[in-house]
Write a protein that binds this DNA or RNA. Sequence first.
DNA 1: GGACGTTATGTTATAATATAACGTTGATCA
DNA 2: TGATCAACGTTATATTATAACATAACGTCC
Lengths: 170, 170
Amino acid sequence: MTETQKACNPGPATHDHRRCIATALREAEDLCRARAVNLTATRRRVLELVWQGHEPVKAYQIINNFRAGHQATKPPTVYRALDFLMENGLVHRIESLNAFVGCTRPENRHQADFFICTACHRVDEIDSGKIAATFEKLARQQNFTISHKTVEVYGLCRACHEKTGEQFHA
Amino acid sequence: MTETQKACNPGPATHDHRRCIATALREAEDLCRARAVNLTATRRRVLELVWQGHEPVKAYQIINNFRAGHQATKPPTVYRALDFLMENGLVHRIESLNAFVGCTRPENRHQADFFICTACHRVDEIDSGKIAATFEKLARQQNFTISHKTVEVYGLCRACHEKTGEQFHA
DNA sequence: GGACGTTATGTTATAATATAACGTTGATCA
DNA sequence: TGATCAACGTTATATTATAACATAACGTCC
């Protein structure tokens, strides 16, 4: 099991997700304080909504769920908050889904690559040292100079793969 | 004036892009005949427009440039044609750009990974045997079962990298 | 030969995603 | 105290994509 997963275990709803949210928010607060950037109430609320699960969340889900009490919000507010959160490595964008996911290890800035489960939609960051090396080697062969990348790998996570197996036996 | 055809993006050497287009269309015709699928005039025209360069082309560029004579078209027509072309491996979608690019080797069906130049926007398919192996190994470690992936690597192609170098000396 | 199925396209409307442009507020501080 | 700035509000609109239903063109089967 990788370090990425921390307290949360694979598969939907098998853990107390409130702890994931609390941890993510606390880490975000600490990091923003340390970096002297401003984690405002709006940004904090958006981060909380991104963390409503381990699945990617769409911008308009956030917009629609934003109202706390009876305050609504509008697209630019949420997109700005998402920009801030991405700049600060607290949230990643999943390009192939037009969606956003909380970063599980924001303390070290990184570009993330992802495994995305097509069954439960859980996203895990790939530990990407080896991937980077592979790409660098290929790039050198073509004289290509890499700056950044989008890597989103789809398939079944362990839990869902096992469930599928169960279905075959049922 | 249309958004068509800024001269071809160099890549290694400047080339006569009309030949690229002609080749792509001919190969498409051959493949569709061999597979007994129907490369209609609409689909052929969309493919031609996707091939207006080696850069990704947006759906609405295609829609706006579609008129041959004075016939316009509407989004569903073009999206349907793109779906057909993608199903038949003649076109790939670049997820992180919401854009489409002609496939350079449609004769063998494949999922493609890409190098995308941030300067000239040229796209090249990565020969991805090694990439797949690397991902498979990582996936096994996490008990993840891969089905497909999006890999889009950004940076400078050789030509643009060299140009940038020149600029630094200028 | 005409009813029917199939494939592809046309048409209308709208959904879903994202940003431009400009206005307001409240904190800070010279 | 008023200039500045960061953050957010507001309005409008741009961009990307699809749903839903209508029509056309063609083959086929009785």
